[in-house]
Amino acid sequence: MNIFRLAGDMTHLLSIVVLLLKIRTTKSCAGISLKTQELYVIVFITRYLDLFTRYVSFYNTAMKLVFIGTSVAIVWYMRLHKVVKQTYSRDEDTFKHYLLIPPCFILALLIPLEFTVTEILWSFSIYLEAVAILPQLLLLQRSSNIDNLTGSYVFLLGAYRALYIVNWVYRFFTETHKIRWIPWISGLVQTALYADFFYYYIKSWKNHEKLRLPA
């Protein structure tokens, strides 16, 4: 475990804490894409299939349980909680997220880490995570005003994978000296999708003005 990976995991955890904080304190999920959250449930479940078969460390197992548990809880809040579900921007969250699944699955069949069920699903999860943020980014473009917690959530979510990229570079030079095409290319695509959001987020933060994404 290196500092970059730990920072990445903590940033990822913090993003989820911020989102849960927003939902629980404001009892609202306005501006949050349910479709992105549903994709994350699929990402975590297909990635952590080895949760009970391969023990890496207490930290690894605990974090996997937290990520699966919180992502399911967020979908539950947005779909079933009597107050929160009323605040879901249903008619703006229109990205056809189910269209993302077949290409990622086909890509996982074509380029798996290994041709076994768990590795194909692991690769699928890596590819899907790269594009899972698209419904959320589209929703942000449509949101007239993005509240601070939502903006912070998306920023932290983008920052975590950027930190993972630094971790991969660090591990390449200090440990493995192996190129890992699947997570690296997916991670670069994933982080690149946040590029314009990062630009407008940092600009709004520097100018102390409300975050707005051009339509």
């Binding site: 990976r5 995991d9 990822h12 080895d50 391969r54 890496v56 460390s57 690894n60 974090m63 996997k64 990520f67 880490l113 290994e114 590795e119 692991w122 993972y164 971790n167 591990r171 440990e175 493995t176 192996k178 890992r180 699947i182 997570p183």
Partner: peptide, 10 residues
């Protein structure tokens, strides 16, 4: 080794 290392991350 590659497989192991890629699966110790989240």
């Amino acid at each position: 080794a590659a497989k192991e290392s890629s699966h110790d991350e989240l």
